[in-house]
Structure formats: structure tokens, C-alpha cells
């Protein structure tokens, strides 16, 4: 039973890492994110084989059940990632707004009848 679970985890993790590699190869993903997610895949594989490590870590933190610790870590990690991505999206939105403004300014047309206007 345990072996089967490990096989599933390894297969999923390897597919995930391959997907990340493929996205980087097609230049659809920045290297920094690819490295991060591949790291996640490697850690997942490692923990599925070295359960005793996970249990030790959990005990050290005062958590009785190893997988609970894993849950906690992954939740915190995903929370951090979501926050980071919100930050990046906000930054990108501001940049896009600036670009839109620049486009509007650079294609500004003078008024049709060019009569001089006095204050």
C-alpha cells in the first residue's frame, strides 16, 4: 500500500518537473519560478521516501502526526506564493497602466481646426 502511494507521488512529481522544464524551454515561464517549482517537486519526492525524516521533523515541532506537519508546511508555502503573486500582479497592473497612458499620450492628435486659442 505504502509502495503504491510512493509510486504515485514520484510519478506526479516527475511529470510536474517535466512540465516546468517544458514551459521554461518554450520561454513561457521565468527560470526563477521554474527552479522554485522544480524544488517543490524534488522535496515532495524526497519526503515520500524519507518518511522518518518527516516524522522526526514533526515530533521536533510538537506535531504528533507527520502528514499534518506536511499539510501545515504546504499550506504556509502556498499562502506565501499566493501573496507573492498578488504583489507581482499589482506591480504588473501598475506598469500596464503606465504603458497605456504613454500610448494615449504618444498618439495624441492636435485639434482639428488649428486656430490659435488665447487665454
Amino acid at each position: 500500500m505504502r509502495d503504491r502511494l510512493e509510486i504515485v507521488i514520484v510519478v506526479v512529481a516527475v511529470l510536474f518537473v517535466l512540465l516546468m522544464l517544458e514551459l521554461v524551454r518554450r520561454r513561457q515561464l521565468r527560470e526563477k519560478y521554474a527552479l522554485l517549482w522544480m524544488g517543490v517537486g524534488v522535496v515532495a519526492v524526497f519526503l515520500s521516501f524519507a518518511r522518518s525524516w518527516l516524522d522526526k521533523l514533526a515530533t521536533a515541532l510538537g506535531i504528533d502526526y507527520g502528514p499534518s506537519a506536511l499539510f501545515l508546511f504546504s499550506t504556509l508555502f502556498l499562502l506565501g506564493m499566493a501573496a507573492h503573486l498578488s504583489w507581482e500582479v499589482s506591480r504588473l497592473e501598475e506598469r500596464i497602466r503606465r504603458l497605456a497612458e504613454e500610448i494615449a499620450l504618444s498618439r495624441a492628435r492636435p485639434p482639428k481646426d488649428d486656430e490659435p486659442i488665447t487665454e
Binding site: 497602466r97 497605456a100 497612458e101 494615449a104 492628435r109 485639434p111
Partner: peptide
């Protein structure tokens, strides 16, 4: 433009604040 205004055309909707900043 036909009415004599200088027109700044934004490529997509930015909302009033964005328009004013432009």
C-alpha cells in the same frame, strides 16, 4: 476630435482615475 478637442485615446479602459492621470 471633430468638435475641436485634443483626444487622448487609451487602448483599454482604465477608469476615471486612470483617465485623469493620463
Amino acid at each position: 476630435h471633430d468638435s475641436g478637442a485634443i483626444v487622448l485615446s487609451l487602448p483599454f479602459n482604465l477608469g476615471v482615475g486612470g483617465a485623469i492621470r493620463t
